[in-house]
Simulated scan of single mutants.
Amino acid sequence: MLPPPLKVKMVDPGFPGQHTTTTTVQTSSTTVETSIRFDPFYIRQLPGMLKCAEVVVNLIGFICIEASGFHAESSRGTFFNTVAMTGFWFTGILLALYLFHIVEKLYKIPWVKIEFVFCALWTGLYLIASSLAIAYHVEAYIAAGFFGFCGMVLYGIDAFIKFQAIKNGQLAQGERVISKQTTTISRPAY
């Protein structure tokens, strides 16, 4: 024998006692000054300090390999010097562009994305180049490897900062003002 079917009574919750409508309007405006001018305060900010440190580390690593006397005999030294000198010139030119606000003048170029890709790539290349240099067991190569690992850390920090800037929609130089206007309307309970 089957048990009798269960009867379930559904309770209609009805319309909620309070109704809230929220409207959010987001506007943004970009403010850039397109005149070329020298700004020594850039090197006192974190991105400027990072670029200066990267230029110095690239140059010191290059000099260590060149001073070893083995740079012509080893493909490791050639690879390290290629990474160091490309980083030196690219970062040095970017530093000059930022110091003279040329990046701000050319604000339509996606500078932050370009720098993120470069810094992320150089983090990996310095890891490889420094590991190869240290494994050569020559004092100058070991010193260059140390500075290469310092460069790897600097470029890694710079890549992280650029990633955060991309995520937040920041400009490389200049200001982007994003304002939000939120309106909330609450209806009383009936």
Rank of each mutant, 00 (worst) to 15 (best):
A135K: 09
A120S: 12
I102Y: 12
E104F: 13
I93S: 10
D158F: 09
Q164L: 08
E175D: 12
E104A: 07
G148I: 02
S131I: 07
K113I: 01
Y141V: 07
A159G: 02
A129I: 03
V138I: 14
A159C: 03
C150G: 01
I134E: 13
T123E: 08
Y126E: 12
L94P: 01
L154H: 08
W111T: 06
L132C: 11
E175R: 14
T184P: 00
C150P: 00
I93A: 09
I178Y: 00
A129V: 09
I166Y: 08
K105Q: 09
S130Q: 08
T184W: 05
K105S: 00
I109Q: 01
K108T: 10
E115A: 13
F147Q: 00
A172K: 04
F118V: 01
I166R: 08
Q173L: 11
I142R: 11
Y141D: 03
L99K: 00
L95P: 06
T182L: 06
V153T: 14
H137D: 08
V177E: 08
G148N: 06
I161S: 05
A159F: 11
G151Y: 03
K180S: 13
V103R: 09
L154D: 04
E104Y: 13
G169V: 10
W111Y: 10
L171Y: 02
G151T: 02
G148C: 01
F149R: 05
G145R: 05
V103H: 06
G151C: 05
L121T: 15
L154N: 05
N168D: 09
I114A: 11
